[in-house]
Amino acid sequence: MLIFFKKETLESHPICACCSQQATKENAPITFTDLDFAGTDPNQDDPMVIIVELQNFAVKKVLVDQGSSIDILYWKTFRKLQIPPEDLTPYDDPIYGFAGERVPTKGYVDLHTTFGEGQGVRTILIRYLVVDAHTSYNVLLGRPSLNAIGAIVSTPHLAMKFPSPSGDILTVHGDQKAARECYMASLKLPQPPLTAHNIETTPEGALLVGDDLDPRINSDSRVEPMGETRQFPLTRAANRKEAKPVSQKKHKLGEERRQAAKAEAEKLRLAEFVGEARYTTWLANVVLVKKPNGKWRMCVDYTNLNKACPRDAYPLSSID
């Protein structure tokens, strides 16, 4: 996630890592070899996720993001670190994400952060902006902290190297398992709901009105066709000539599923999306699947009909 400030905001409220003075002596060159890879799957494009020490806590799921101009401590992690809220320095200006979305801030706090393990460690003071946002990570380390320790990140090796105060080169390896867990968790994060500007409240509940369904309705600048128009007849599905109609036997749904299917069918009928048909040659049962929120999703089993229809010459493109 790329995070950046507006120029005037950054100048008036500097949020950056508290950097130590640069070492006067020349450090050893930093290089990477295949031996630096400590993951389980070398064929990877995983992000750099490491472990750091904050407030005497070993904090996992720390994302190293060279595209971020700030260091972020997420609000959920801030609370778990048992930091008194009064230690936060107020900072109300929002930050902006990759798509330009506004992200609210809580303030900022300076924390000593330790990189590495055992004897090969380095501790610096980092100024974290505390952000309340949905994420699968605990901390996001951006360019300020990476520049402060002189870190070089190699994503092919999932390793980060930086000089110690004595001039030795220290290595921090990425946690490939944690990186993939965070990625999978991010796919399940709640997304902000889509807002509709035209909603009318009826006795049956909220109802979307015309402007949300078709912007041409009730508009002074309605788009009209140009030139001669003609009716385009709707045709039936192009079944194979040798295909025979299939009428599935009625499946018992149970009382709860039956009531849910009846309610969904009534909604479709009122919306004039479906109509009643008698003596149909093709008949398929509905399948009800329970959603995570406890409600029912009604599907139709088109397996037999799909087998009887020729393959579309213009299929949809592959969707990831």
Rank of each mutant, 00 (worst) to 15 (best):
V109P: 02
I72L: 13
F115P: 11
Y96R: 08
F57N: 15
K80C: 15
K106N: 15
F57L: 14
R102K: 07
V52Y: 04
T77M: 09
G97H: 03
R102I: 15
H112P: 07
I83T: 02
D65P: 09
Y91Q: 06
I95H: 04
G100S: 12
K106Y: 12
I50H: 02
D93E: 13
T105Q: 09
I95A: 09
Q66A: 12
F98R: 04
G100V: 15
D71V: 04
P104Q: 14
W75I: 14
V49E: 02
S69K: 14
P90A: 04
E86Y: 09
T113M: 11
F98D: 04
P84G: 04
G97N: 03
R79F: 05
S69A: 13
T113Q: 06
N56S: 14
V52M: 03
I51G: 10
D92Y: 06
V59H: 07
I50W: 03
L81W: 02
V62N: 05
E53V: 15
T77L: 09
L81P: 03
A99I: 11
T89W: 01
Q82F: 00
D87C: 07
S69V: 12
L88F: 01
T105G: 12
I72G: 00
Q82C: 01
D110I: 07
Y96W: 08
I70A: 08
V52R: 11
V59F: 13
Y108W: 12
Q82N: 07
Y108C: 11
Q66T: 13
P84E: 07
E53H: 03
L73R: 08
L54G: 11
L63Q: 01
Q82Y: 04
V49L: 08
Q66W: 10
K76N: 08
D87I: 00
P94V: 08
I83R: 09
Q82M: 03
P94D: 05
L81D: 05
I51P: 01
T89Y: 07
F98I: 14
L111V: 07
I70V: 11
G116L: 15
F78D: 04
S68Y: 00
L111F: 02
T113D: 00
V62T: 15
G67F: 08
